[in-house]
Each structure stands twice: as structure tokens, then as C-alpha cells.
Design a protein around this nucleic acid. Structure first.
Lengths: 310, 310
DNA sequence: CCATCATTATACCTTTCAGGTATCAAACCC
DNA sequence: GGGTTTGATACCTGAAAGGTATAATGATGG
């Protein structure tokens, strides 16, 4: 598959007419027909229903049209951004973080960093904990915030805090009627949703480990790619889910949350960075985080701060 | 730009070595070098720093690597999905909706539709109100939920309810101290964030119209692409923002919301569909929505239901 | 239902450009 | 600093994109 084929298909899909599309593309009609045929051959699926005029897209063609349009827009955006970054003299500082930290202190930290270094272009990139290690080593990010512990010679990690875990129940679930902390053992036999399903090891494994260490076996375990989906399934009444405390800001109307009683049922927030970091902002960033924690923001509740030991 | 060049660049960026990358790609090294050069020429930006071995990516190259990897993954996903849809015999039903309706009844409606038609593959696609009209006409979606009124011969629209609007304040803003409804006139002179910036006309214009009709002029107006960004800027204390009531479920910790007193300060939820819809499920869907509204879910508060007139 | 028009598919030729080979020029490594 | 690794350059070959002519097919109107 080549971008040319996507461009051609988009033109045909928009015009619903090969000849006119070919004109717009400044090529003759037969090569256009052939490229579309090749695309369909490769996919093994018909995209255009040619049995009637004006042409109609097949079901698969409609989907492909939608997607390829978005992809072309995204590529155009990448092209412009790359050009801009290449020509810009401003320094870039890229932060990789797992989604749940965006519900915690990251937005506030970025604000403080903006104030501290106005000439820095700060960028946030969502990224699983495990990806952060390689991204750091390959200098694709300068700082990472994750939830899974790992060891790597080149990467230093610092546990900022241990966040308590909560159980998400569908509204109306018998065990959701109390607002009190819940014992981990009450998950015995309950259907459980975990996330993310890839890449491993992830938060999903931390939860499974925690349960098996305590000898608790859920009734069923299903994996989904992201927390939104997980909470959607919880809201639909199909299952329960264990999430970090800060993430319970989501869906307050159709999902109920109960903190887990066991104080060791926690998930860490780990900051990681290159040992040989040349940009030399790490110490000041630690200081900004200390100041932020001192302000005791609401998302800090239910956490055991550890940064002071740093 | 062609996908081949993205594939080649990814291989070089991963290996940090042209010769080895060429081996992996089963081509010789010189053509690989040339393709990368062409890519760099087209972008007008150097992606790879060749002045030292092992090779290093430039700042722009790092960005391009990140992006093109994601794009390739997305294309792969599109290819598989297209194939699957093309071979599947199941019927697809695509719903286009603006983001804020996902905080309302759409998830519940989809659940009910799943139960009613187990053999239907229902798909949700985020889409601005204006895009929905063309998407309906081109049969890319079967049902739309939007916030902007429009007229089109082929498309029928039905106002489900009028949702009250609320103002978002940064925590600690003097006007956020009261929880009572706020008069629209109090926005006079305040800096305002509106969204989405494209495509027009959008919710942003509805807000601007409403204000100018009442003779209210905000201190400054800035446009952003999406509500997340808008609320982030509000949380950072830079501005205020007017949003539909159902969207106030977001960021409850660092943003305060006050309902607007004026009962006409509302935003409609509009369902739209093709007049000639062949799938013939519209009447049953209306019935499902009526049942859903009868259950009086929490997101229905602060809304004036209008569906009964349908 | 057939004739005509519009439009797409097929056959075949031309041209462009991706890929290969040979070789040169740096950069790294003792 | 001389050998080795590796990327760039020059030039050639061949696959594939694009063009032209024409046949096949669906739409349209009497």
C-alpha cells in the first residue's frame, strides 16, 4: 500500500467518478482505475461498487474513506510540525506519561515549568510505562511518568508517591451501596476488567500480581486496551475494575468507587530520566514537584508521598 | 511523500545504521540513502544527524519517528478493519456524534441498541455537527447527534432536548465562590475561551451569538480546538469558558461550574438521519430514547426534554 | 427493447524512478 | 596513522507508473 493509492482513492470517493477524479489528479483515467484495482486486490476487498452510476462505496469502502481521510490529515500535520521543529531554534522538552497521570499533577507541573522556562517548548506524549524506558534511551523523551517499576542501567527512577487503589462498581451494584473502604478479599469471585492489554508488563499485571499474592481469584478476567473502555464496561454493569485513586474523577455519574482498605494496595507514580541527562533541569523539576506537593492539591489525597527522600 | 519513505525512515531510525536497515528491508544501501535524502529534501529539514556514528536523530527526526510510527500502526489497523468489514456479513450501523454527547446518553443508547439488535455492529465516530450532514448524505454514518441546527433537504432533524449551559471557572476565582446560578451579564469583560475552532459554524459560534444578542462583550476571546484544552486553560486560571451542562463532569477538582440563570441559555441535542433511511430502525431508536429518558438518568438534569413532540 | 451516450476496463506502449553495482569519502578504532 | 566500517555518489537496469487507443458495460431516452 502506498500513499498515492490513498490519495487516488480519496479523489474517486469524493467525485464518485473515475474520469473526473483523474482530471483533478492530473493523470489519465486508466492508470487511476488500475491503482484502485491494485489497492482492492491487496486488501482482498471491493471498495467501490461499480455496478451502478453514479458509483457507490461499499461498506468497507466507506470505512476506508473515513480512515484514510483522517490519516492523510494526520500526515499533513506531521509534515508541518516536523518542518517547524526543524527550523525552530527553541529548545524542546518532551514528557512521556501514562494516561492516569494526566488526572494527577502533570498539567500543574507543566504550568510551573512553563513559568520557570518560558523559552522551552514543552510537549506531552501519552506513553505506557515500559515504552518510556526505550524512549528515554533513544532521547525521544526527556522525562517519564509511569506506574511500573523497571531497572535499566541508563535510566534513573524516582518514586514520587504511592497512590491508593480504588474499585469501580456499576451504579447500583450491591457492594457499591457503602462508601467505606472495601477489603481486597471481596473481589473473590467477581468478574474483573483489567487494562492496558499491551504492552506488557503493565498496570494490568500489577493488579493480577497483587490479587494472586493475596490468594484471591476473580470470577473472570477480561483485558481491554484502555481505561475508558474498562469503565464503559463497568458502567454497563458487566464487570468490576481496579484503578488508581486519581482516575476516579472519570464518569462520576454512572460508576461508583470504593477505596481498597489494604494500605499496601497501591500503585506508584514513578518519574524517570536519563542518568546522563544533558539538559540539566532534573533537579529544578524535582524542586517544582516538591512545591506542588506542598500545596497539597486534591489529587494528592489517598497517596503516600515519597519524594522527600530524594 | 510516500509510505515507502516512512517505512524506510523507521527502519533507519530503529537501527541507527543505514546498511543494517537496508538489509532488514531487503534492498541495497544506496537506494535507501537516496529515499531518506528525498524525504529530507521534501520536508526541507534534516532528520538524521550523520556527523557521528552511531547515527543520531535530529530533534525534528525524533518527532517524525514518533509520529510516523503511530501513523504506520494506524494504517495497519485500517487495513485489517477494512478487510474484516469487507468479508463480514453482519450489518454495520455507524453513529456520528459530537464529543459532548458521549458524556450524555449515547453510551447508554448504544447499550440498548446492542440489546435490541444483537447482530448489528454498532460503531461510534466522533464528528462535528456540520460534518454530520455530509456524512449522512454520503451514507458514511446512519445517525447523527449534534449541537448545531442546520437545514438540508435530504436530512431530517429532531431536537431531543435543550441542555442548560454552565460557566467554567478556575478554582478560587472570585465569581466561583457562589454555587448559585450566574447571570449571563456577569461575563461582561471576562476573558473567554471558546471551542471548537473548526469547522464552522460550531458550538463556538452559538456562544458568541448568544452573547452578542444580549449585548455582552467578553474581555477577550480565544479559540481552541477542543474542550479538553479549553478546560485546561480554565484550570490554569487564564480564562472562563461556557460549556453544556453534561460536560461539567470533567475535571471536577480544578474547575468550578455555575449554571447560567437565563433559561434560554441552552444548547440543543439534535438527532439527525436520512429521510430515505433504508435500514428502518429510526422509529425504534426514538422509542429506545424515550425509554431512556423515562428512566431519568443523572445527565438529563438541567435539560428541557422535547422528544415527546416527535 | 434497442440505439446512443457516458464511463470504466483492457491492451499495449512510453517514461519515470526505484533498486542494483562499483567506487569514493568520511568516521571510528585500535 | 592505517585498517575497517559505513554512508554518499555515479551510473546502469528493470519494474511499475502513466499515456493512448479501444473495447465493454451501465444509463438514458425514444
Amino acid at each position: 500500500m502506498e500513499l498515492r493509492q490513498l490519495r487516488y482513492f480519496l479523489a474517486v470517493a469524493r467525485e464518485r467518478n473515475f474520469s473526473r477524479a483523474a482530471e483533478n489528479l492530473h493523470i489519465a483515467q486508466p492508470p487511476l482505475s488500475r491503482q484502485i484495482q491494485q489497492l482492492e486486490d491487496e486488501l482482498g476487498v471491493l471498495l467501490i461498487d461499480r455496478s451502478s452510476r453514479p458509483l457507490d462505496l461499499t461498506e468497507a469502502g466507506r470505512f476506508f474513506y473515513e480512515q484514510s481521510g483522517q490519516i492523510m490529515a494526520r500526515i499533513e500535520h506531521m509534515r508541518e510540525q516536523t518542518r517547524k521543529i526543524g527550523l525552530s531554534k527553541r529548545e524542546r522538552y518532551v514528557i512521556g506519561c501514562v494516561g492516569s497521570t494526566l488526572y494527577g499533577g502533570i498539567p500543574d507541573l507543566v504550568r510551573r515549568m512553563h513559568m520557570r522556562w518560558p523559552d522551552l517548548d514543552i510537549e506531552i506524549r501519552e506513553m505506557m510505562s515500559t515504552e518510556q524506558v526505550t524512549a528515554l534511551k533513544e532521547r525521544r523523551i526527556d522525562l517519564g511518568f509511569g506506574r511500573v517499576r523497571f531497572n535499566d542501567r541508563e535510566v534513573e527512577r524516582l518514586t514520587l508517591r504511592e497512590e491508593r487503589l480504588v474499585v469501580a462498581f456499576p451504579k447500583g451494584h450491591p457492594k457499591s451501596l457503602s462508601a467505606d473502604p472495601i477489603a481486597l478479599s471481596e473481589l473473590e469471585g467477581e468478574p474483573l476488567i483489567i487494562y492496558p492489554s499491551a504492552p506488557r508488563p503493565s498496570f494490568a499485571d500489577e493488579i493480577l500480581n497483587m490479587l494472586s499474592e493475596q490468594g484471591i481469584s476473580p470470577g473472570s478476567v477480561e483485558e481491554v486496551r484502555e481505561i475508558q473502555t474498562a469503565l464503559g464496561i463497568v458502567a454497563a454493569g458487566m464487570s468490576l475494575c481496579v484503578i488508581p485513586a486519581a482516575s476516579q474523577r472519570q464518569r462520576p455519574d454512572d460508576v461508583c468507587y470504593r477505596t481498597i482498605k489494604d494500605e499496601n494496595a497501591t500503585s506508584p507514580i514513578i518519574m524517570s530520566f536519563r542518568r546522563d541527562d544533558a539538559k540539566g533541569r532534573i533537579e529544578e523539576i524535582k524542586q517544582l514537584i516538591r512545591e506542588m506537593y506542598a500545596d497539597n492539591p486534591p489529587w494528592l489525597q489517598l497517596s503516600n508521598v515519597q519524594l522527600d527522600g530524594a
